[in-house]
Amino acid sequence: MKIRRIENLSELPCVSEVPLGGILSNVGNSAQYRTGSWRTQRPIFKADICTNCLLCWINCPDGSIAVAEGKVTGIDEMHCKGCGICAYVCPTKPTKAMSMEQGGEY
């Protein structure tokens, strides 16, 4: 098991450095936030079964299904929170092209 990285507090802003009212001027910075560290389960993608219906892509609340040229190519593990919605909506039978497995590390 990997141990979660501890923030180096001295690298964070001190009292005189925090922005007024907590305003963010580098908008769109949520991409830098590792929501993937919240995960306890991870999606496993099987490209050979996938029909590229893109139901997982449209339902993923974090935009973490990677798609190129209309085809699912994998998972953005830095942002996937492991909610399992992609696996829930995946329609392939009898084996799901997207399924959940224990373990969240990446």
């Binding site: 009212g21 907590g22 305003i23 963010l24 001027s25 908008v27």
Partner: peptide, 9 residues
Amino acid sequence: NPISIGALA
């Protein structure tokens, strides 16, 4: 000068 207000701290 786009900004975001009310972010999580």
